[in-house]
C-alpha cells in the first residue's frame, strides 16, 4: 500500500517538477509548482510527518507561491516580450551535468544504509515542537531574527522611493 502511494505521489511530484521547469509562461510554472508542493506534502504524510505537511501547504503553497503569483501579475510581462530560450552550450552541458548529479546521488543513495521500518514519529507536532523548544531553541530564535530581516529587506527593496 505504502509503495503504491509513494510511487503515485512521487510520479506526480516529478512530473510537476518537469513541467515547472519547462513552461514558457511563468504563470503556468507557478501553478505546476503548487501541484508539486502538494505532492511533496503527501509524501510527508506518508512518513507520519503531519505537522510538516501542513506547514508545507500553508507556508509554501499558500504563501510563497501566492507571492510568486502576485509578482508575476505585478510585473506582467506581455507574452511576446518573454525572454526567448535558446539551447546554448552552457545550457546543454548544464542539463547533462544535472543528469550526472542525479545518477551519482542515486548510486550514493543506495550505499547509505538506513533501517527499514515503520516511520518514527518525527514530523508530528509533538516531536517537532519538543525538539524545537529544547534542543534547537537557539535556531528557533535566530530564525525569528532572520524573518525580521527578510521583512525589512523586502520592503526596503521593493519601495518606489526610499
Amino acid at each position: 500500500m505504502e509503495t503504491v502511494l509513494f510511487v503515485l505521489f512521487g510520479a506526480i511530484a516529478v512530473c510537476g517538477a518537469i513541467m515547472v521547469v519547462t513552461r514558457k509562461s511563468p504563470m503556468a510554472s507557478a501553478l505546476y509548482l503548487i501541484l508539486t508542493l502538494f505532492a511533496v506534502a503527501a509524501l510527508f504524510v506518508l512518513r507520519q510527518a503531519h505537522f510538516l505537511a501542513a506547514v508545507q501547504v500553508i507556508v509554501y503553497a499558500g504563501a510563497v507561491v501566492v507571492l510568486f503569483v502576485f509578482v508575476i501579475m505585478l510585473i506582467n510581462v506581455p507574452e511576446d516580450r518573454l525572454p526567448v530560450e535558446r539551447a546554448t552550450t552552457t545550457r546543454v552541458l548544464g542539463v547533462i551535468a544535472a543528469g550526472i548529479l542525479i545518477l551519482e546521488s542515486a548510486v550514493l543513495a543506495r550505499r547509505y544504509w538506513m533501517p527499514k521500518g515503520p516511520a518514527a514519529e518525527v514530523g508530528t507536532v509533538e516531536a517537532v515542537g519538543r525538539a524545537l523548544f529544547t534542543d534547537y531553541l537557539l535556531a528557533f530564535e535566530i530564525t525569528s531574527v532572520l524573518l525580521l530581516a527578510a521583512v525589512i529587506g523586502a520592503i526596503a527593496l521593493a519601495k518606489r522611493k526610499i
Partner: peptide, 24 residues
Amino acid sequence: VGGYAFSLLAGAVLLVGYILYRSV
C-alpha cells in the same frame, strides 16, 4: 549568472563524484 550557476553545478558534480569514488 547562468554561467556562474553552471560552474557551481559542475563543482558540485565533481565533488559528489569524488565522494562516490572514495566510497566505492
